[in-house]
């Protein structure tokens, strides 16, 4: 094979590399949302959280010179928005979906407002780990330059699954999500549990946002998110509220997003708008295929408004 060029072999490689690069924000947002939804609440505001995380992470990395400080601040900003969501939803007669839409707007607006001075400067980026050192091909080496956040996400998924299944707090969370009445009867503080779950979910989504600005594509601007936050919320339903399935779903989406540009770089340019819509079509198709009007989805928390 020509050393410099991969030809058609580049397409699967690009899809694979793209899956790793593009999937991380999906992964973090969907893990966070998974946790929140398990407590019986949906937070649609994670799109705003993602954008806020991207902005605050980039700004912090630029101001302090430390990208990891950026990741931390992005997570904290995310949990702040999560706490706000939970606090408002704890009030009577408040629809969690509506609060999510409101926070999507507020988070995005605040990020754009405060982020103006950070569009131009270049912030230090998160370092990548060169897993491809063994390969002679520059493309393979670059594809395997993996960001540690991706690995953190990978490790987090089974950890969350284990935590939800076997630990005490995991059980409490699931009871609150399955039946608020039962949880109340058992004396668990429903609102506090949901607050913690939403704050943790917001933290993850904020970190996912910082990946966008601090690793890939690695820049802050107002068009950074093209709906990754909201798509990830849909992913959770598709992944049946299982953190490990969230990983596979995110990889699938990252790959779908990389397909269009990869095909074009080898000369297939027809209908590129339709290729670009592939992730959305795929989400919708999967939701249609896996939902049912008759019974609740397997794994769905009974208190969740989206599944009722």
């Amino acid at each position: 094979m020509d050393h410099a060029s991969l030809g058609w072999w580049g397409v699967p490689l690009a899809v694979l590399a793209g899956a790793i690069r593009v999937s991380t924000p999906f992964l973090f947002v969907s893990l966070g949302e998974c946790l929140t939804e398990k407590s019986g609440r949906i937070n649609l505001g994670l799109e705003g959280t993602l954008v806020m995380g991207a902005m605050s992470g980039y700004a912090t990395a630029y101001l302090t010179g430390n990208p990891w400080a950026g990741v931390l601040v992005a997570g904290l900003a995310g949990s702040l928005l999560g706490v706000l969501h939970a606090a408002i939803c704890a009030l009577e007669r408040v629809n969690d979906i509506a609060v999510g839409i409101a926070l999507m707007l507020l988070g995005t607006g605040l990020a754009f407002f405060l982020g103006k001075p950070f569009i131009q400067p270049q912030a230090p980026q998160l370092p990548a780990i060169p897993f491809g050192w063994w390969s002679g091909s520059a493309q393979v080496r670059s594809a395997l330059d993996i960001n540690p956040l991706f690995l953190v996400g990978l490790a987090l998924a089974p950890l969350l699954l284990w935590g939800l299944r076997t630990t005490r707090w995991g059980m409490v969370l699931r009871i609150v999500g399955e039946s608020a009445e039962a949880a109340r009867a058992m004396g668990y503080p429903i609102n506090r549990v949901r607050l913690l779950a939403t704050a943790a979910g917001g933290f993850f989504a904020g970190v996912g946002g910082s990946f966008l600005s601090l690793s890939y594509p690695g820049s802050w601007n107002e068009r950074l998110s093209s709906g990754q936050g909201i798509t990830a919320v849909a992913l959770v339903i598709f992944a049946r509220w299982d953190p490990v399935l969230c990983v596979w779903a995110s990889l699938l989406f990252g790959g779908a997003g990389a397909l269009g540009p990869a095909l074009q770089s080898v000369g297939v340019t027809q209908g590129y708008h339709l290729f670009n819509a592939a992730p959305y079509v795929l989400t919708l198709a999967i939701m249609i295929a896996t939902s049912s009007s008759r019974h609740r989805l397997a794994g769905a928390p009974a208190e969740l408004s989206v599944t009722r």
Binding site: V94, V99, A102, L103, L106, T108
Partner: peptide
């Protein structure tokens, strides 16, 4: 320009809280 977005977001959030 995002000022308008921020104001809209604040109105939306406060309004939902006021539902209670």
């Amino acid at each position: 320009d995002a000022s308008v977005l921020v104001l809209q977001g604040i109105i939306f959030v406060v309004l939902l809280a006021s539902e209670a």
